[in-house]
Write a protein that binds this DNA or RNA. Structure first.
Lengths: 335, 335
DNA sequence: ATCGCGACTGTAATCGATTGCAGTTATTTA
DNA sequence: TAAATAACTGCAATCGATTACAGTCGCGAT
């Protein structure tokens, strides 16, 4: 691996001039510049970015903390992050945390040890260890989907889950549904509260009975969808419509429901969340809420970069647009 | 951000001693060490990993080049990579290349500019630019799934696609199928040749007619699966069984087939590849070949690390075990 | 008392860049 | 023609670590 010195030798100039032809080309004479570029080409020189990072104090990378890499929705966000980062000359360090605090601490620590300049968190936990909490104060950080629980208010990119759920609920009540079930993901989260709140507000308005015994599930997974559906089907009064808090859950639930010999949507309507690609290909295709995941990833990068560059944030909360995607998994109630 | 110097001040020692308590604790006296650790805690000092990387010449990160982050199979590989990397103190830089040479060059270049120590490539293209080809010679690099096409033989982690396809083909012929269709992914690749070769070898043995007009498709996607199925269904003699070169294709194909009012597997059997999670949840559940993706990711890390550490490779080609997962999408032929 | 050795610790060079400041020409202005 | 300015370029300090080498100290062996 050749260094800047070798280029100097070849071109007969100082390191300063070589460095400048790369960073501030117009500071150096055209002829010298050409000679240097030739030397660079001949030697196959590649600047050591780490060395330059030490000097400049910027690593030009971002860490992304993902609770679960298997979730296609997160994946889509990451794609957005990756693209936007790349466009801005940043690279992305991937941290699969599995929701484990220890792994979060470890990855979040990368920002403290100069390995990364900023942090994008796809979860609501405060990712730093208590030890690092003080240092974390000035770390550029954004969360996507849910606000991070901490003293300091970090910015967040999120959807209006309350309204989205109201839209979904109205969609279902307009089909005459009166008995609802919910298969949630992680409870104890803002999303959980917002979504459930949205649903309940509509049911209240329409004087439809609903109580928390009809809320099951605790994980965003196929398995949780299966188990949740099983639990709901075992109730004395079966729901005719089930809200699933993401598409994976919905797919798991549909699988289980069909296993019980029930028809979707004739016997039970199922709706999901996220609009992951496969949701259009399952049978029946899933009615769901589209979250612009890719866009959310891009926005997240924008926001961290703004913090990194020390620009004041325009707003601390970026709300993205949802839209309801009506497909065949929801239909008229069979009361 | 406090540096090593501040710790020196606090503890009243030299930078050397601080550095040593962190890297070679037993080189320093217990009492001094404690004093230093206290100082570190008090100052909230975090070593600047970039600075240390400059000195040691190791960045302790690996780049992973993915042609398509949406593919759940690649995702699973990446999860394996990420876990294994983390266990070995490495971090992973994510590069979504979209199969574009330019982006590949850019990401592969990270190894040349010291941002990463090694490269894991989930594709068969030679990821460096022609310019960098010479430098690439000594880059630690592994590919997963397919051997990289280049002068130098880089190691590869792969499955025996030929045998896997033979197993699948035998499974289908044992059900009495005689008319086959194939929806391939990227053609012009070793996987394509191996898989098609495996299929043809069985059909030849069993004297079953088959010609390349029954091979369609050119991309690993749902859409390609739909289009492929449509093309195959339009043939004068329809196949009774369709090989899809991954599960996404298979899911797209099943969707299209059902849209034509045909029953799976009664009218047509469909088999896929990879055994991604959702393949068990589609209707009907998909018969497929399980590739141990997570394990492949882990192995890939093992192999690059071996190269990075300069250890000779035991073998240049790591073959992982496949297994055939029989589900309801394949059944007796309806000739 | 001297020597040798082990156990620590410090000095200073070094990794590969970047950059403020100063020096050298060449060119323009008075 | 002298002075001022512009346009380059180089010197050397610096970023924040790591580490070879040397120095100090205490203690047992001779």
């Amino acid at each position: 691996m050749s260094t800047i010195k070798e280029v100097c030798q070849l071109a007969g100039v100082s390191t300063a001039t070589v460095s400048r032809t790369l960073k501030n080309p117009d500071m150096v004479n055209v002829k010298t510049r050409e000679r240097i570029l030739a030397a660079i080409a001949k030697s196959g020189y590649r600047p050591n970015v780490l060395a330059s990072s030490v000097k400049t104090g910027k690593s030009n990378s971002l860490v992304v903390l993902v609770p679960n890499l298997s979730n296609p929705f997160f994946l889509k966000i990451i794609q957005g992050v990756e693209k936007a980062a790349q466009e801005n000359g940043y690279s992305v360090l991937l941290g699969d945390t599995q929701g484990e605090p220890l792994r979060e601490h470890e990855y979040a620590g990368m920002v403290l040890s100069n390995r990364a300049d900023g942090l994008i968190h796809l979860d609501h936990s405060f990712p730093f260890s208590d030890n690092d909490a003080l240092l974390a104060e000035k770390v550029p950080m954004v969360s996507v989907c849910e606000r991070i629980v901490s003293e300091k208010q970090y910015p967040v990119i999120e959807m209006d889950n309350y309204s989205a759920c109201r839209a979904l609920a109205k969609h279902l009540t307009s089909y005459g549904h009166k008995r609802f079930g919910v298969i949630a993901g992680q409870n104890e989260s803002q999303i959980y509260r917002d979504r459930l709140g949205g649903i309940k507000s509509v049911l209240l308005e329409e004087s439809i009975d609903f109580d928390d015994s009809m809320v099951v599930g605790n994980e965003y997974s196929y398995e949780s969808g299966e188990a949740g559906a099983r639990a709901l089907l075992a109730k004395k009064v079966r729901p005719t419509a089930i809200f699933c808090f993401n598409d994976d859950i919905a797919i798991g639930a549909m699988h289980e429901i069909k296993k019980h010999g029930l028809k979707i949507p004739d016997d039970i309507s199922v709706v999901g969340f996220d609009n992951i690609k496969v949701s259009a290909y399952v049978d029946p295709p899933l009615t769901t809420i589209d979250q612009p995941a890719y866009e959310m990833g891009r926005k997240a990068v924008e926001v961290v970069l703004q913090q990194i560059k020390g620009k004041p944030l325009i707003r601390n909360r970026e709300i993205v647009q949802f839209s309801i995607i009506e497909r065949a998994s929801s239909g008229a109630a069979n009361n």
